[in-house]
Simulated scan of single mutants.
Amino acid sequence: MPREVRHWSLTTLREKLVKIGAKVTRHSKYITFQLSEVAVLRRLFAAILDRIERLALPPPLDE
Rank of each mutant, 00 (worst) to 15 (best):
I31V: 15
S28H: 12
V24A: 12
L13Q: 04
T12D: 07
L35R: 06
T11F: 06
S36G: 14
K16Y: 01
L10E: 07
K16E: 12
R42I: 06
R26A: 15
W8T: 03
K19W: 07
K19F: 12
V38Y: 11
W8M: 10
G21Q: 10
R42W: 00
L10F: 09
L10T: 01
V18C: 09
R42H: 04
I48Y: 06
R42A: 09
Q34E: 15
H27R: 14
L49F: 07
T11L: 05
H27M: 09
K29G: 07
T25A: 12
V18E: 14
L17T: 10
L49I: 02
S36C: 06
F33H: 14
K23S: 11
G21H: 14
T25H: 10
A47C: 05
V18R: 12
L10S: 06
L17D: 01
I20Q: 11
I20T: 09
L41T: 10
G21D: 15
V38T: 12
F45P: 00
V18W: 11
W8G: 04
K29N: 15
F45H: 05
F45C: 09
A46F: 01
F45G: 03
V40R: 03
L49C: 13
T32A: 11
G21R: 12
Y30N: 11
S28M: 08
L13F: 13
S28Y: 00
S36E: 13
L49R: 08
L44N: 07
A46N: 11
H27C: 01
S36L: 04
L17I: 09
T25D: 11
A39K: 04
V38N: 14
K19M: 13
R43C: 09
T12K: 14
A22H: 09
R26I: 13
F45Y: 09
L49K: 06
S28V: 08
I31D: 08
K16W: 02
V18H: 10
R43H: 10
F33M: 15
A47Y: 02
L13M: 14
I20P: 01
Q34I: 14
T12S: 00
F33L: 15
L49M: 14
K16P: 00
R43L: 08
K23Y: 12
V18P: 00
V38A: 04
R14K: 07
K29V: 12
T25P: 03
W8N: 02
S36T: 11
S9P: 03
A47I: 00
I20W: 02
L41W: 02
A22L: 14
L49P: 00
K19Y: 11
S36W: 12
L10A: 06
L35P: 05
V40D: 05
F45L: 11
K29H: 12
Q34H: 15
S9M: 05
T32K: 13
I31H: 08
R43G: 06
A46I: 04
E15F: 06
